[in-house]
């Protein structure tokens, strides 16, 4: 068996004796002999194929009938089961109707139409003479237009043509307002109560037990004019941890209340809601791109593509024991943008 490697393509050898260049190559033996099909030689097979094709077309008819049956006689009576059944029947009806025709035609083509392969010569896309003539014609056109001889005309035309489309861009200016400082503040304001999402009922500090998480919107958001736009910036996640485990930095000691902290729910990566709170590890996880924030380090990024901590909402408690915001966020929430600074 070792002899099998004899004459095998050892690179150095084959490069030394290349068989390229048309001298030492095999000649094309031409098309292999045609092998007749069963239906070509056996009339019974031919008849059988014919019946099969007809049967397939008949199956298609049945499929169409199934569709009509499902459409008119499987009523949608408010139950999901009925809808699922109708969908299945409509779909299978269509599938049979289509596959019956398709498979039938192809079967017909394969068994009953001629299966001799034919050869056709390729022609050049164009011939050289045409190309030369075309070149000449274009030359004449350019000459007669005089565009080469009159640079003043040419250059002013180019200038005009470059400018002319600009209005088509400018006209889209009113697609939206300018950003202004819209991204730099949110609905939150000093003294505004923290309320439950989506009901909008206020939250008492005593409601927030250790280990719990509240999804929070600002008071009055549900009645706001641009509710969704405001909500897209203002949503907050509220959690209570053991005060010992929080390590507030200087100047932020009073941003929480007795272990209760509120952080923006909008990811600093591309803006998905960072809503997954692991109450034992004190990690927040974004389900879209897995950025992980550590509550014990003021929501510093500990994993994933985000590069900035989640902004914290400073909170306090009012006279009635309800949680309120001390102010708006101290920095823009959500994904970074050029003017963020």
């Amino acid at each position: 068996m070792a002899d099998n490697s004899h004459g095998s393509p050892d690179t150095s050898v084959t490069v030394a004796t290349p068989g390229q260049g048309g001298v030492d190559t095999f000649t094309n033996p031409g098309l292999p002999p045609h092998r007749p099909r069963l239906a070509d030689t056996d009339p019974r097979a031919e008849k059988r194929a014919e019946r099969q094709v007809a049967l397939l077309f008949f199956i298609s008819v049945l499929g169409t009938l199934l569709f009509f049956f499902a459409y008119f006689f499987i009523p949608l009576n408010d139950t999901i089961e009925q809808l699922r059944l109708q969908n299945l029947a409509l779909g299978l009806g269509t599938a049979f109707a289509m596959l019956g025709i398709g498979v039938g035609i192809v079967h017909w083509a394969k068994t009953l139409m001629p299966d001799h392969e034919l050869t056709e010569e390729r022609h050049a896309v164009t011939d050289e003479k045409d190309r030369a003539e075309a070149e000449q014609i274009v030359g004449t056109i350019l000459d007669e237009s005089g565009i080469k001889r009159r640079p003043l005309i040419r250059n002013t035309l180019i200038g005009a043509a470059l400018l002319a489309p600009l209005p088509a861009i400018a006209i889209f200016r009113d697609l939206g307002p300018l950003p202004g400082d819209a991204l730099k503040h949110t609905f939150w304001d000093a003294g505004m109560r923290l309320t439950r999402d989506p009901s909008g009922t206020p939250i008492k500090a005593s409601d927030v037990t250790v280990g719990s998480a509240f999804h929070v919107i600002p008071e009055g958001l549900n009645e706001a004019e641009n509710k969704l736009e405001e909500k897209a910036k203002a949503v907050v996640l509220l959690m209570r941890l053991d005060p010992e485990s929080l390590n507030p930095s200087e100047g932020r000691e009073d941003w929480g209340y007795d272990g209760i902290v509120a952080y923006s729910k909008i990811c600093t990566h591309v803006g998905c809601p960072v809503a997954l709170y692991e109450q034992q590890t004190h990690h927040l996880l974004c389900p879209c791109h897995q950025s992980t924030f550590d509550l014990e380090q003021e929501c510093k990024v500990i994993f994933g593509p985000a590069a900035r901590p989640l902004p914290q909402l400073p909170i306090d408690v009012d006279d009635e024991g309800y949680l309120i915001a001390r102010s708006d966020f101290q920095e823009p929430v959500g994904p970074s943008f050029w003017e963020r600074g």
């Binding site: 029947a89 299978l92 269509t94 289509m98 596959l99 025709i101 498979v103 139409m113």
Partner: peptide, 25 residues
Amino acid sequence: GPVYAAKAGGFFFIVFGIVAAISAA
């Protein structure tokens, strides 16, 4: 004509049929 057109034409119905069967179930 006829073989290639028949195959290509039939294949449209086949593709439609496959999509319909998937969408049914």
